[in-house]
C-alpha cells in the first residue's frame, strides 16, 4: 500500500524515474502528493557516483495541465557519494499547456554540476482534483442531462468490498464528492462530482449492488479523454 494518511489523499509509493546508469550516477525516485490544496513532487535524489553533486535545478516541459515548479529545487548542501536526500518540490498549474499522450505524461529536465538529464513520469490525475469540486445539486442535474449520452463512459471497478458510506468517505478524502445518494431496488446509486485544476468538471454515477463486489462507474464529462484517467483514480483510491 501507499503512505497516505487514513483521512488524507492517497499517495503512491515512490518509483524510480531516472536510474543511475542513465544519469552519470544520479538516481531519482519520486511520487506526487496533494496536501492542503497544494501539489508536490516528492523526490529522492541519490548520489551513486564517486564525486560530489551540486547546483541542482529542475524544469518541466509543457504538459496537459500546465504543471510547473512553483519554487526552485531546494538542495541546500552538496550531495556526497552514497548520500540520498528527500526533496518536496511545490508545483502549480499555471505553466504552459500542451496536450500530451498519454494525458498525464510529464517530461522533466534536471541538471547538476555534472550534466543535464531528462526523464518522463506519469502523474496520477487525482493530484488535480480540487477541494471545491462539490457541484451544486441543481447544477449537477442540469449538467447530467445536458452532457450527451455519447459522452458517457462506463467502467467496472472489480473486487471492491467497501459499503456506500466507506466509499463516500474515502473518495471525499480525495476530493471526489457525493452530491446525492439513492437506493433503488436495494442498490446504492451515488451521484458524485469532481473538478480538475483547469476547471473541467466530471460527473459520476457509482452503482453498488448488494452481493456484487463489482461496482459500475458511469462518467460524464465534456472532455471524455479524461474519463479513463478518472476511472484509474477511482480504482487506486478505493483499493488502497
Amino acid at each position: 500500500g501507499g503512505v497516505g494518511m487514513p483521512t488524507g489523499s492517497y499517495v503512491a509509493p515512490k518509483s524510480v524515474w531516472l536510474p543511475a546508469a542513465k544519469a552519470k550516477g544520479l538516481e531519482i525516485s519520486g511520487t506526487f502528493s496533494r496536501r492542503m490544496g497544494h501539489i508536490y513532487m516528492e523526490l529522492s535524489l541519490m548520489n551513486k557516483a564517486m564525486q560530489v553533486m551540486t547546483d541542482f535545478a529542475i524544469q518541466f516541459n509543457r504538459n496537459s495541465f500546465g504543471l510547473a515548479p512553483a519554487a526552485p529545487l531546494q538542495v541546500n548542501a552538496p550531495l556526497t557519494p552514497n548520500q540520498t536526500i528527500e526533496v518536496s518540490l511545490p508545483l502549480n498549474t499555471v505553466g504552459p499547456v500542451m496536450k500530451m499522450d498519454p494525458l498525464s505524461n510529464l517530461q522533466v529536465a534536471i541538471k547538476n554540476n555534472i550534466d543535464v538529464f531528462y526523464f518522463s513520469c506519469l502523474y496520477p490525475i487525482n493530484m488535480l482534483f480540487v477541494e471545491d469540486g462539490k457541484m451544486d445539486r441543481q447544477i449537477f442535474l442540469a449538467t447530467w442531462k445536458d452532457i450527451p449520452n455519447e459522452n458517457e463512459v462506463q467502467f467496472q471497478i472489480k473486487e471492491c468490498h467497501l459499503n456506500a458510506d466507506a466509499v463516500t468517505n474515502k473518495l471525499q478524502s480525495n476530493n471526489i464528492y457525493t452530491v446525492a445518494k439513492r437506493n433503488v431496488e436495494g442498490q446504492d446509486m451515488l451521484y458524485q462530482s469532481l473538478k480538475l485544476t483547469n476547471g473541467i468538471w466530471v460527473l459520476a454515477e457509482l452503482r453498488i449492488q448488494p452481493g456484487n463486489i463489482n461496482y459500475t462507474l458511469s462518467l460524464k464529462c465534456r472532455a471524455p479523454e479524461v474519463a479513463q484517467h478518472v476511472f484509474g483514480a477511482y480504482e487506486t483510491i478505493l483499493k488502497n
Binding site: R137, L141, W144, A180, R182, V184, M189
Partner: peptide, 20 residues
Amino acid sequence: EMDDDLDEAFSRLAQARTNP
C-alpha cells in the same frame, strides 16, 4: 420546497437509470 424538488429529481434520475 426547492430542496424537496431536487430530492425528487435525483430519485427520478436513479429510478430511470435502474429501469431505463
